[in-house]
Design a protein around this nucleic acid. Structure first.
Length: 468
RNA sequence: GGCGCCAUAGCCAAGUGGUAAGGCAGAGGUCUGCAACACCUUUAUCACCAGUUCAAAUCUGGUUGGCGCCUCCA
């Protein structure tokens, strides 16, 4: 498979370090609030990458952290007057709920920063020993200029950074040797969570945790490191500096970054009031629709989020679901018989679609193209596959579309739901009315059920219903 | 100021040298008691200008417009 590597700015053939094994590290959220649409994009995109690699037979070690010690968490805790651990634990649980609702698989490991402090201290010690870090008044800084490759991911050169920096001085800057140096360990302030360290009580800097956790749970070299494009600088640049300075080996082979999500054409931000949490969106749309919507564009493109676009995705997804529902019915009625010569061609055609789908996914996870292949299959199924075919043919069609959707994390399997007896009775009454050509009554019942979110469809095999 | 990205039909969105996938919406038709589902038909020369080439949406240069990072951020 080809992956666009931010480091080289090119699509490269993906070759894992260890045969058939892939280690993926995705920077996870800071848990101080419900996750929003922007957080969801990398979760969904890289979960899809993971699912595809698993489908290809790779053993995927997927690590994604929870940043559970951070200024924003502390601020929130102070506002609510509770310990910050209460905030982080609460939102880790909420984030997990949202991820589940988005059908994002649980990571192999979900490390938390606060549980990895000893390893972070060890890495800082190594960096100090090697001359890549130094301590001033309880703060440990990374000596950025001591790492020659600094800027290689974001393609920034140190002198440009210096020029751009002059206007934006930060407090405490005087004590640093160099403005480029960033914090590995910061001393405790009153009321903040802290840990013992050789440099006094304090807490780790943000960039350090990812270097430490990826090393611990994947190894010194990781196959794929992923996250939002805004993390390229400074977060990922700093991770590279820390890890490569400490471990003396390349940090990550492939860097993948998803594009930003915009709201009605504008950047999402709290001040613009266009900040949407997954929790709120879930009240308006099935989150499956959101997942489908996000995957309908290439992951590196900016993606605009607007109601009309989601509505459109909802209709699109229904087309797939309708086709699957029809296939399921066809399976029930299809006979187990010999596959005819003509049907053999149908089976071959199905495999051609699979090949085409895989080619799309192989090309830097082109989910938009892959989805278009699914729609081609849907059309093919709707027009060429029916209960008149041998059962095995129908089953294959159903299984293939189901599997290809599953790789995208789209659930097509609908569990058979039992309607309550009252609704069931109304449907029966309507059927009787139709038989008696009392269409006024039949339509009236259909309207009543529609009002309750039950949509009826009359098919040759009888009445079908679905939720609006 | 530095680094980088994008511009394809009413909307969304693939396509990186050989004469434009797919979806939504719209129009016409078939099926249906009607509707829904489904099926058939129908809707673009790819921001603009110049160049390279037998051939460009696809390469090069320029113009215009939009966006991101450089500060916490997915």
């Amino acid at each position: 498979m080809k992956i666009y590597n931010t480091m080289t700015r090119k699509k490269e053939d993906f070759v894992p370090i260890r045969e058939n094994k892939v280690g993926i590290y995705v920077c996870g959220p800071t848990v101080y609030d419900y996750i929003h649409m922007g957080n969801a994009r990398p979760m969904i995109v890289f979960d899809t990458l993971r699912r595809y690699l698993m489908y290809k037979g790779y053993d995927v070690n997927y690590v994604s952290n929870f940043t559970d010690v951070d200024d924003k968490i502390i601020k929130r805790a102070m506002e609510e007057g509770v310990p910050s651990v209460e905030i982080s634990e609460r939102y880790i649980e909420e984030v997990k709920k949202d991820m589940k609702a988005l059908n994002v698989m649980e990571a192999t490991t979900h490390p938390k920063a606060t549980e990895e402090i000893p390893d972070m201290i060890d890495m800082i010690k190594v960096l100090i020993e090697k001359g890549h870090a130094y301590e001033v008044n309880g703060t440990v800084y990374f000596r950025t200029r001591s790492f020659p490759g600094y800027g290689k991911l974001s393609k920034k050169n140190i002198d440009d950074l210096e020029a751009g920096h002059r206007d934006i001085k930060v407090a405490g800057e005087e004590e640093k040797e160099d403005f480029l140096d960033f914090v590995l360990w910061k001393p405790k302030k009153e009321g903040e969570p802290s840990w013992e360290s050789p440099w006094g009580e304090g807490r780790p800097g943000w960039h350090l945790e990812c270097s430490v956790m990826s090393k611990k749970y994947i190894g010194d070299i990781i196959d794929i490191h992923a996250g939002g494009e805004d993390l390229i600088f400074p977060h990922h640049e700093n991770e590279i500096a820390q890890s490569e300075a400490a471990n003396d080996v390349e940090f990550a082979r492939y860097w993948m970054h998803n594009g930003f999500l915009k709201i009605d054409g504008e950047k999402m931000s709290k001040s613009l009031g266009n900040f949407f949490t997954i929790r709120d969106i879930g009240k308006k749309y099935p989150l499956q629709v959101i997942r489908f919507f996000i995957l309908s564009a290439h992951y590196r493109s900016p993606l605009n989020f607007a109601d009309t676009l989601v509505e459109s995705s909802k209709s699109s997804l229904e087309r797939i679901l309708n086709a699957m529902s029809k296939l399921k019915d066809a399976m029930d009625y299809a006979e187990e018989k010999e596959v005819s010569a003509k049907e053999k061609e149908l089976l071959e055609k199905i495999e051609e679609y699979v090949t085409k789908y895989e080619a799309a996914m192989e090309d830097d996870l082109n989910t938009a193209d892959a989805i278009s292949v699914i729609f081609e299959m849907v059309k093919f199924a709707n027009s060429s596959i029916s209960s008149a075919n041998a059962k095995i043919v129908v089953e294959r069609m159903y299984a293939v579309i189901g599997k290809l959707c599953d790789i995208l994390g789209i659930i097509t399997e609908t569990e058979t739901e039992i309607l309550d007896s009252e609704i069931e009775a109304l449907i029966q009454e309507r059927q009787a009315a139709r038989k008696a050509k009392n269409f006024a009554r039949a339509d009236e019942i259909r309207d009543v059920l529609a009002g309750q979110g039950i949509i009826l469809e009359d098919t040759r095999e009888g009445v079908k219903w679905k939720r609006a």
